[in-house]
Write a protein that binds this DNA or RNA. Structure first.
Lengths: 337, 337
DNA sequence: CACGGCGATGACAGCGCTGTCAACGAAAGG
DNA sequence: CCTTTCGTTGACAGCGCTGTCATCGCCGTG
């Protein structure tokens, strides 16, 4: 019950190991008949090529790295599964790595991963995708990588993202169209570039509809439930409280919902609440959240796709922008007269 | 800016590569002075040994595999981080793998992972830890592995778990002590062994307090929100509805909460709701859930710990049972008079 | 003083593959 | 008819390490 090697397959098929290697790597110049014989032998022996040997001997490791820092559990799992799904299609494997540190320490961590595991490429998720130091080091290193939702689009390196600003604008306009004029906003974590994009979209919608921007209605949050709860309490106890609150993600929106419950403010009758991301949370709170569907799974799937394509073609990876979608549920409605 | 090898370090330190290898592997019989020189050279060159080369040449790959099937995002992330944290302490890396299939197909998937990646050991999370076919194959293969919350404790293989039955009993007793006599119960996914343990604990508590078990108050769920919602609706529209519902996990408890909202039943005034797991969800719904804290992170940390210890000592891994904790929040209270 | 034992170090094979290049026969061209 | 080309296959080196075994100098012992 020991591990089979390429020699076992070669012997069973009556060919040289190099021919087995050719078949496994889909190289040309193998007679179809020979190819079939090798494939049959490999199947019979349940042969699995050793990734270690492959990456040591060749230029490819069949490994893609996914690096992240500290995203929410739901977001992370979606990214992870999106990247895994695409890897599986190409018989690649995904190496998931949680990074630590910032700046130089972070870079060392990631370079260490690359050196140790020989990954062929990297999918860099936010907020790591915003670390200039890391991106520069990867560029210098010459390792192919694709960033998810980076902050610096002028940078040449490839990325996959969605239109955060447009989505936030559209959501704000939804609230305006409902009839809201005084709308609260909770900003996301200051380290995430998406936070400022969403704020920008919010302001753009106000401007377009000639509604004055009131700084009192804007609170700083940190993308976590507690920060939304706190910001919600502050907004709802304002002398002239908003009739709607748009939180930069669902976790914080759930916090606002709780704040409203505490203050006995019925949602959506006297307060509309909107979120962002469309995570699991949006569907399990009451009322269910109107939110922006962020295609996390697809973002990672697509990033991995671009990476694998570039590995195959040898060209630099391309770039993609994925569509978002406004999801209307029960947490938003016209304001009370 | 290319990858450094052991030869570079050996040259810089003025020793043979074998000596560098000895130092890196903490082998004895190296003069302290030599060791220091090698360490300094490795540090200077930012040398990272190639995992591929190590696993190809030696008996160890410095890789641990974590296999899972389809747990909730929060649970998965906790496991993943628990295992990663322990791996990092020993300079091991964690290979996370989502499995597909059942029975033989599942086994092939996992054996394929082992063969390809040369992992030194496996942490097997539920519900995979309940697959007899897989466990048998791993045993036969002779690869060290630790199961998390397995179903078959008579089996010789090592595991880490918590006392699901005791926890469910304790939670039920909490509801009984509040004064509830008619208590609904939502069973977890039938494929998860924990489901039957929790049901058993529920029944044990009723029995101990001489409360008759009414099958009408027990609904089958599937550990997901929607199933809790549905079961909640059924329970609460019963001719003689329960005054408390104990759901086998937090997701389903959140569903019950929503069902209560729909039916305008105030929680906890007219209905108490209890969950299980103490995931993130328990703290973001309203009212916040009374639940059992399941030490997922620690479970994985501990499983990885046992695995690494056994790798070091060469002995078979040990077994551990971790403590749970009842968390009382606002979703449970004495029933209305 | 000769010898054995031991701690410290190095030489070298080889893990399982891929890359390179050579070999060989058949088809194509003069 | 011989030469060239091309498709097919194999021999072999070597990726960066670890395991095995040899080597060497130094100590203690009879």
């Amino acid at each position: 019950m020991t591990r089979k090697t390429i020699h076992d397959v070669a012997r069973a098929a009556g060919v040289a190991i190099k021919t087995v290697s050719r078949v496994l790597n889909d190289e040309p110049n193998v007679r179809p008949e020979t190819r079939a014989r090798v494939l049959a032998a490999a199947e019979m022996l349940q042969f699995q090529p050793s990734l270690s040997a492959r990456s040591l001997a060749g230029r490819r490791s069949y490994l893609i790295g996914l690096v992240y820092e500290n995203p929410s559990a739901n977001y992370l799992v979606e990214l992870q599964h999106g990247a895994m799904a695409r890897c599986r299609q190409e018989k690649f494997r995904l190496f998931v790595h949680q990074c630590s540190g910032r700046g130089e320490e972070l870079t060392r961590d990631v370079i260490g991963l690359i050196d140790q595991t020989h990954v062929d490429g990297l999918v860099v998720s936010p907020p790591l995708s915003e670390s200039a130091h890391l991106i520069e080091a990867l560029d210098q290193r010459g390792l192919p990588f694709v960033r998810i939702a980076p902050n610096d689009l002028k940078h040449v390196s490839p990325y996959v993202d969605m239109d955060d600003e447009g989505a936030a604008r559209e959501m704000t306009e939804h609230l305006i169209e409902c009839g809201h004029r005084r709308i609260g906003f909770i900003i996301g974590h200051p380290n995430h570039f998406a936070s400022s994009l969403r704020l920008r979209g919010f302001r753009a919608a106000l401007e377009r509809h000639q509604i004055a921007f009131d700084p009192a209605c804007v609170k700083q949050g940190y993308f976590v439930f507690e920060s939304g709860l706190e910001a919600g309490r502050e907004l709802l106890t304002l002398p002239d409280p908003p009739t709607a609150v748009f939180a930069s993600n669902d976790d914080m929106a759930a916090g606002v919902l709780l704040a409203a419950h505490e203050l006995a403010i019925p949602v959506p009758q006297r307060l509309s609440v909107a979120g962002f991301d469309d995570t699991y949370i949006a569907r399990i709170v009451w009322p269910r959240l109107t939110t922006v569907h962020q295609p996390s799974y697809d973002l990672a799937f697509s990033a991995t796709d671009l990476l694998l394509q570039s590995l195959k073609s040898g060209d630099a990876p391309k770039t993609a922008r994925l569509p978002y979608k406004l999801i209307r549920r029960e947490s938003t409605a016209p304001p009370a007269p």
